[in-house]
Write a protein that binds this DNA or RNA. Structure first.
Length: 808
RNA sequence: GCCCGGAUGGUGGAAUUGGUAGACACGACGGACUUAAAAUCCGUUGACUUUUAAGUCUUGAGGGUUCAAGUCCCUCUCCGGGUACCA
């Protein structure tokens, strides 16, 4: 059998594409722009992971197929090279990130990415660590600062003792640092924040109409977490007023105590002399608790009494005020009214500390005693004086809130779970935050003309845990003058979270040629928002959330005329090996390089896509790539002229061949459209099987096969296309048009069921009427015996498919 | 706990709107070629009863709707992912 040599063929086409500029896009001249974006990788020292390739290939197929459909596809690539992943590795190996990173990038691009056969336009590469890029990352910061979307505040923040830096809420996973798995603690520090909460409501509302994978939207919805309720005003007996947030204002009469978060600023003020020592001891102990300790499964509630009492505004009842860490300062007002009868957490707390439990909701059915178990459900109010009989509901807007609002005791309000994005990092390997602290002017933005604030190359870049970046040790870096008053000043020494670098990289790709603006308005108008973004769902509440927020911010500031960065986002699945998640610990990580070397990129790509459903994920099996090489060999042999022969240049005449050809074109096109790559490969296999079995040697058939397989196996497809005299690149040949008529079979096999059980199959001409079919069915052998002595009470006909006879 | 996915042969996985379950592969078995092996090609391959032929069963478990259920509805089990004291 004629085989092809992937090493030679792939090298040939890599060189050809590069020479001809096949993968480069004329951005200014494009008529039908299609911006095909994939999530850029961070250039780790380990090299590209098979998961990266799975993601990239699935995206590349979309890019290549859109090109076949006549679009001008722009498919760029870059490197997300700032951040702790690179820096931690550098620290471990003792190599400076400034030297290690460029080498990693080089290796990623030249030895790996370029060998995969991705249709990447390398003339627009982006590297987030280059000053030409991070100059504009800093510009983003300055722009946000000037528009009051970036601010500095002292707050209790997540501190990773391993990485010795603060982290955003999104980077704390199960109480641990996303990068190094250290247990995260709380630390009170002054930090830079972006006002992500400012757009929480609109970002949530916008989700409904967005063309995104549903599970990604659900994750964002939960993370933003809207809850509607009321803020109710209480007063400390003989002290200040304070507000609580509740989604159950209807249960106001059931509030038997109040709880303040340990960090609540009113706590020291209201605590009585007698309780001072105990309260301050408790507050200190909360500070030192880690997230893991605080949230430990089944952890008992803790808290202390402040000695103060609050006045319930509806009945003037005095209730004790407690401090407890189950109330969080970062949510609502940092204080709650506790209704132990109708809230599980309050109930647990009340039981432990012997606080009263008053039932105010009557569900109208038998329930356990609220003294032993909280009742959380709908019903009617009781023990609530003038509110008795009103509807009580666990969610929604209640009439009772309006009543309270009229009396000035409460107001409707909406709270979001989302927190402002903490963006400062006490680390070295990131873009310095472009702010200067001046004693007289306060924090001042570095003027745009002075950007970038260059990251100095320092040898001692180890974080010291002091709560300040290693840059704070470099006086030459931070000693400066105030851009406003000219007085002595110090630079901000923290660097930005690297999620800021990745929140805007796709605006930069089209505009890499411009050094006087982050993105060119004309090109941006033409190419953005991104047409299709394919990536992993693990970024649902990180990169995808941040980049949506930044887009909205830039839109509000007048730099973009759209508020959503991606027209469509598709989340691919995760790939596992032999049923188990891949990890270094398990030692079952796949090295893509070896497979590509041994079997070729085309076989590897096609196998990755055949393995399972792209959107669900797949299971990588060892023999798979080899088997796929076997298929591509068979495909090659099937479509090339037979030994000593030629291909028929007439259109195929045989109806069977016409059927297979046309229906495969139809099916593969539909499969590409819905990311169903595994079935697309199966369809092509069926067509190839037909061609082989029937020795079809036909030019049109062969060329079509090359086009069908091209997005999957681009090198091989080009090789076949060229050998068969096709002009130009196979990707510039218009996608074949199928003939609907030829997709129909002339003869079909009817399934005959009796009472829903299959009793026979008869081949019949397609398109017959029930009347024409009936006698043939009744007479057919195998069916007749099931009808003997029975009466047909119903007949169901499904055209060209099935007859079901219901008998008695 | 809550929110999403899943569960189909020995294995990975197919199955547009309910209409032939197991497409397409892998593996296994048998055969051809070969001194032999590899490679390649051809055939068989859900389970059970049984000699053929035929029949029965079969999409995690149990119920239901329907002429017809992997697909729709209810209850439950297990697995994967996300999230977690958010008032």
């Amino acid at each position: 059998m004629a085989k092809y040599d992937p090493t030679a063929v792939e090298a040939k086409w890599r060189a050809r594409w590069e020479k001809d500029g096949t993968d480069r896009t004329d951005l200014a001249g494009a008529k039908k722009p299609f911006y095909n974006l994939m999530m850029f990788p961070y250039p780790s020292a380990e090299g590209l992971h098979v998961g990266n390739l799975f993601a990239f290939v699935g995206s590349d197929i979309q890019g290549r197929h859109h090109r076949q459909l006549g679009y001008d596809v722009f498919e760029p690539m870059g490197f997300d090279a700032f951040g702790m992943h690179s820096e931690n590795f550098a620290l471990r190996t003792g190599r400076h990130p400034a030297e290690m990173v460029p080498r990693n990038i080089e290796r990623f691009r030249e030895s790996q990415l370029k060998k995969v056969g991705l249709m990447l336009d390398w003339s627009h590469q982006v590297d987030t660590t280059s000053p030409e890029y991070y100059r504009w990352t800093q510009w983003m910061f300055v722009t946000l600062f000037k528009n009051d979307l970036a601010y500095r505040k002292r707050a209790s923040v997540n501190w990773c003792p391993g990485c010795k830096t603060v982290l955003a809420a999104e980077q704390v996973v199960d109480g641990q640092c996303e990068r190094c798995q250290s247990v995260v603690t709380k630390k009170e520090m002054a930090q830079w924040f972006f006002r992500t909460t400012a757009f929480a409501g609109e970002m949530l509302d916008e989700l409904d109409g967005m063309d995104w994978s549903e599970r990604t939207k659900i994750a964002q919805r939960n993370w933003i977490g809207r809850s509607q309720g009321a803020e109710v005003k209480f007063k400390i007996d003989g002290g200040p007023e304070f507000a609580v947030f509740t989604t159950r204002p209807d249960t106001l009469f059931g509030a038997t105590y109040m709880v303040f978060s340990p960090e609540h600023p009113l706590v020291p003020e209201i605590t009585t002399e007698a309780q001072k020592a105990e309260v301050s001891r408790y507050r200190e102990s909360c500070q030192s608790l880690t997230e893991v300790e605080r949230q430990a499964e089944g952890r008992e509630k803790t808290g202390v009494f402040t000695g103060a009492h609050a006045v319930n505004p509806v009945n003037d009842a005095l209730v004790p005020v407690w401090v407890a860490d189950y109330v969080l300062m970062g949510y609502g007002t940092g204080a709650i009214m506790a209704v132990p009868a109708h809230d599980e957490r309050d109930h647990e707390f009340a039981l432990k500390f012997g606080l009263p439990i008053v039932q105010v909701v009557d569900p109208g059915r038998e329930i356990p005693d609220v003294r032993t178990e909280a009742f959380v459900g709908d019903g009617r109010l009781v023990n609530s004086h003038e509110f008795n009989g009103l509807e009580a509901k666990t969610e929604g807007v209640f009439s009772i809130t309006s009543l309270l609002e009229k009396r000035g005791l409460a107001r409707f309000t909406t709270n979001y779970r989302l927190r402002d994005w903490c963006v400062s990092r006490q680390r070295y390997w990131g873009p310095p935050i472009p702010i200067v602290h001046c004693e007289t002017c306060g924090p001042v933005a570095v003027p745009e003309k002075d950007l970038p604030v260059l990251l100095p190359k320092i040898d001692d870049y180890k974080p010291d845990g002091s709560g300040r970046s290693p840059l704070a040790r470099d006086e030459a870096f931070h000693k400066t003058v105030c851009p406003e008053c000219g007085g002595p000043a110090v630079r901000e020494t923290d660097v930005s979270d690297n999620f800021l670098c990745s929140a805007w990289y796709f605006y930069r790709y089209p505009s890499t040629a411009f050094d006087d603006r982050p993105f060119d308005p004309e090109l941006t108008k033409k190419w953005l928002p991104v047409d299709l973004y394919v990536g992993g769902n693990e970024h649902a509440v990180l990169h995808l959330l941040y980049s949506r927020w930044l887009c909205r911010a830039l839109h509000k500031c007048g730099f973009l005329d759209f508020a959503e960065p991606y027209k469509r986002f598709v989340a691919h699945g995760m790939i596992v090996k032999n049923g188990a998640k891949m990890s270094k610990n398990r030692g079952n990580v796949i090295n893509p390089d070896e497979y590509i070397r041994d079997f070729g990129a085309d076989s590897f790509r096609t196998y990755l896509m055949f393995m399972g459903a792209y959107l669900e994920g797949g299971d990588f099996r060892d023999g798979g790539v080899r088997a796929m090489k076997g298929f591509l060999d068979r495909l090659y042999a099937a479509v090339m002229p037979p030994e000593g022969g030629t291909l028929d240049e007439n259109p195929p005449a045989d109806p069977e061949t016409r059927y297979w050809l046309n229906s495969t074109v139809r099916a593969v096109g539909a499969d590409f459209k819905r990311f169903s790559y595994n079935t697309a490969v199966a369809r092509i296999m069926e067509l190839v099987n037909h061609v082989t079995k029937n020795s079809v040697h036909n030019l049109a058939v062969s060329r079509t096969v090359a086009q069908l397989v091209a997005p999957l196996a681009p090198h091989l497809a080009e090789e076949i296309w060229e050998s068969l005299g096709g002009s130009g690149s196979v990707f510039d040949a218009p996608w074949p048009v199928y003939d609907e008529e030829a997709c129909r079979r002339l003869e079909v096999e009817y399934v005959v069921q009796v009472n829903g059980k299959v009793r026979g199959r008869i081949p019949l001409a397609a398109g017959l009427s029930p009347e024409e079919i009936e006698p043939l069915v009744l007479a057919s052998e195998g069916v007749a015996k099931w009808l003997e002595g029975k009466q047909i009470v119903k007949k169901i006909y499904v055209p060209d498919k099935l007859v079901n006879l219901v008998v008695k």
